[in-house]
Design a protein around this nucleic acid. Sequence first.
DNA 1: GTGAAAGCGCTAACAT
DNA 2: ATGTTAGCGCTTTCAC
Lengths: 335, 335
Amino acid sequence: MANIRDVADSAGVSVATVSRALQQPERVSPKTRTKVMTAVDLVGYKPNLMAVKFRSGKTHNLVVLVPTVANVFFARVISGMQETAAELGYSILLANTLGNPDIESHYAKMVSTSQADGLIQLRALNPFDNSMINDNGLLPMVNACEVIDEGNYPTVSLDNRAAAKAMTEHLLGLGHTRIAMIKGPHSSPLTQDRLLGYKDALNDANIAFDDSLLFPGDFTLQAGYNAGVTIAQQADRPTAVFCENDETAIGAMQALKQAGLRIPEDISVAGFDDIAFSAFCDPPLTTIAQPAEEFGQTAVSLLIDVINGKIRKAPKVIMPFELIARGSTGPARIV
Amino acid sequence: MANIRDVADSAGVSVATVSRALQQPERVSPKTRTKVMTAVDLVGYKPNLMAVKFRSGKTHNLVVLVPTVANVFFARVISGMQETAAELGYSILLANTLGNPDIESHYAKMVSTSQADGLIQLRALNPFDNSMINDNGLLPMVNACEVIDEGNYPTVSLDNRAAAKAMTEHLLGLGHTRIAMIKGPHSSPLTQDRLLGYKDALNDANIAFDDSLLFPGDFTLQAGYNAGVTIAQQADRPTAVFCENDETAIGAMQALKQAGLRIPEDISVAGFDDIAFSAFCDPPLTTIAQPAEEFGQTAVSLLIDVINGKIRKAPKVIMPFELIARGSTGPARIV
DNA sequence: GTGAAAGCGCTAACAT
DNA sequence: ATGTTAGCGCTTTCAC
């Protein structure tokens, strides 16, 4: 493979001139520049970016840790990241971690071993062992979507508590008083926040919180289905089910319908995330929309600021949400 | 950041010994090894892998070009890739290309600029300009899932024609004779192959092919929905709809149900891919299952063989499929 | 078993 | 505007 030396020889200039002609064309005479470019084509030169990045100490790579790329919401976040990264001259190295700490730390090591300049974590977990703190006292990382509020790094998140409160109020407004909630994984802070929002709304409405209306889940279709089966069988059945994500809601709807219940006439169902499938289920799902692409854009631009030392203290960005009312929620059935 | 020199000084040995102690421990005396490891901990040494990879010329990185990571099928393929890559000591650098040739070539350049050893392409498109052919006459790439049958690289694909034929025969076996097909994107070879399989089955059954039963699509929910609307309005409505992927089928079912048709009593619907949502739609979708994880595993292991020169000519691997019959297909309504 | 030294391909002072 | 040269951090002969 041709290297910079070959180009220099072919063009009859020094390697420094070739490097300059390629990196800072304005610092080279037009004539020399042409000579160099011709030589580049002639010898088929492709710069060894491994050498460039090694030498310059800047990789312009960003590692992104995604619990699962299969999640349609994350996919939109990733699109936003790629857009901003491309604009700012960075590459995104996506790591599908499956929530596996080994895979996470494997990719996190790309930062500590100088293969990437920084990292974006979409889980509420700091993948660095420590000792990675930079001059500003910040870790070269941003925590987005599911965030944890400690640590020296910026976060980008939704006000999950307010969003869950808004959805609960939507259901209360339709006359529901027994509202079940199918939760996300225990370990997820999202679950805590959304539960708090649910409680806030009940509290404001002077309705006592009843923890027998809480059902476990893990954000999967199957978990939603299982919870739906249980709910359908209950003697004193709730009239509405608020699910912590859309997959859960879609699974739950399936179970409720199979049990012969009509949605929303017999029972209302609400989700969270507004994934593409939600507009195409039967009935279409009422849910909370998040500005997914903007999560990604914001996370990337914050991370690059951290890397370049433009940020001294870690901002905690809150993104807006929107309640999308569709056919899966309706007035409570008068008992 | 501590480097190998610091470790050598701290341990009182040469840098060569440190390198050996880390890379080929057996070539160093146990006593020295301990000294080195202690020094490593002491100074907090993390090898600069950019330097290692630059020096050794092997990055142990594989770029994977995915049209969209949001596709649940691709997500499973990616999991399979990561598993095998991890076993063989490689990292996967995932690129969500959104089918954008600019993004594709940007990431493909990671191979030509020595940032990755090879590439896996999940679209039927060679992202290399040329001139990347190695000593065996092979490109350092593998084309999986949606493949194109030209070029000097291994491919891993399904026998889409046979699978589509099997699904069409399933519908014919249920008594359907007017079977609509909602297609994928024109540009995709998948679409051609699946259409051929559909025609094969009709042909075997002595049913004339009717191209008014073909509807355009692009693998999205919305396209399926649009086609479904059209189909529901037809005077001489088909009794079955075969969709080229599950998203299309789910979108189509939505439209058909909204038009008052019962599935499968009034019209059967079949998909392709067996994504997770398919088991949870209403009714659950009859579809073709593909061994997604194995696609990924096979692709990675083939690519590594190519990189290491273990393969002289490009194998064309065909993976098996399975027809999953669920509730969305049933006997044709007697007219 | 260990050390000295060369050099991977490139960038960035510094010199001209 | 261009050339010379010294490394970036590491691996790998080649001596000893």
